[in-house]
Design a binder for these strands. Structure first.
Lengths: 230, 230
DNA sequence: CGTGCGCTTGACTTTTTTCAATAAAGGTGG
DNA sequence: CCACCTTTATTGAAAAAAGTCAAGCGCACG
């Protein structure tokens, strides 16, 4: 099995660190495997540490009173989960669970803070990661403030396509119902809007929950609110 | 005039730091006064430093093609502005300008990074601030994803009332049109919805752009989607 | 004291949600 | 490997919410 130190070194969070800076991190990191269906943490749990995803995907979500999931974020390999509430010294404000079986590393709060204090460059890396995450959140906020559902979907597809750059192909890593909630809409509306995008030739389904963007210009105009769907 | 070192010490960002940790920050901080109508930075400017608000309020906003402002965030005294893109090493993704005349401190990037590297506890404080900001963004995202405009407005009012705790009185620090854009809506809809809240006795106007929450329970039910407005 | 911007209000249109019924898809266990 | 069953996705029609256009009012500010 991959040594912990190599898993840490592979995470963008700790990229650019010398081996002797990663070593103390590896010393405090605990390996955890969590099966799909289990939970990393629940809303309200004290944030006494955070996770780094090694493999699989992890969703962070709220549960509505009726038990429906509202996904706030999906994290992939190399990304930290739950570090923000840990730094703020609060409880976790949401639930986290793997969407597939996942391997993770767990970094306990106090030990991690000690390492940060001893190795400022680790802290700088952490700051950079959180800065990028703020940027993603800001983009999502802008997206949600867009008035019409087609523009929100178009904007989401473009954003994801750029993020997971596999030749303009976007993999939806949640159900359409969850994506609808993510985009501030309903499954029915999402289905209809997506159907229209396909009919207009802007995107083409390429498999299970997978679409390819076939007319990026048109999609971008739509996202910017310059165009309207017929 | 207040010494720079005291202004820094007053910022939550640097709270809990020893005087000898603040001193190097004070050494690199530059005082800047910017009048309402002027700009701190524009979208696309290289992020070569960030600001800390000493007095006044600063808005961070996008400009739509038609020139309309979409406010993303309003910062008050003690809060840092623009530090995230600075850490990410990017350009500013939005504009920033004071809403009133404002006094600020400017911290240049490289000098600040040097201080961080030498004083890890400053970095920890920075991490805590950014963690709190992520939490605010996440709350805003949840709010925007709420389906109906009344629930979004109710949620916003409660959130702001808790933030600026002046006896359940909320001061809107932007025009209603800007608030509407912030809430992903239009001035007309906001006007109507606010009118309904007032008619239902949930809030009462208490002055220019100022409202008092008079039935918090009802507002909370509305925000949670448990109730619907008649 | 005027004037312009911002706010409100009304009538109308468009978009979105809701409800309900059907179809498809995936996972499960035999 | 197949049949079943639960979850997810689509579609239609009607209702509700929100957006648009346009006009008038009022307030804050110069």
């Amino acid at each position: 099995m991959t040594p912990i130190i190599d898993e840490l070194a592979a995470a963008p969070l700790f990229e650019g660190l010398d081996p002797d800076q990663i070593a103390p991190l590896a010393a405090i990191a605990q390996r955890r495997s969590i099966a799909a269906g289990a939970e990393l943490f629940a809303e309200g749990d004290p944030a006494e540490g955070f996770y780094v995803v090694c493999s699989g995907k992890v969703k962070v979500y709220h549960l509505s009173p009726e038990g429906k999931e509202q996904i706030l974020h999906v994290f992939g390999p190399g990304e930290p989960v739950g570090e923000a509430p840990m730094f703020a010294g609060e409880r976790f404000p949401a639930h986290a669970a793997p969407m597939t079986d996942a391997r993770l590393l767990y970094l306990p709060r106090q030990a991690f803070l000690d390492v940060l204090a001893a190795h400022p460059s680790v802290a700088l890396g952490m700051l950079a990661v959180m800065a990028r995450r703020l940027r993603r959140f800001a983009a999502h906020i802008e997206n949600l403030a867009l008035k019409e559902a087609p523009a929100r979907l178009a904007s989401y597809l473009i954003y994801e396509a750029d993020l997971q750059d596999r030749d303009d192909t976007v993999a939806l890593d949640m159900t359409k119902g969850q994506l609808a909630a993510f985009l501030g809409s309903t499954p029915e509306t999402l289905s209809r809007v997506l159907g229209r995008l396909i009919r207009e030739g802007m995107v083409t389904p390429t498999g299970y929950r997978s679409y390819r963007i076939t007319d990026r210009d048109a999609l971008e105009d739509l996202a910017a609110g310059l165009t309207r769907l017929p």
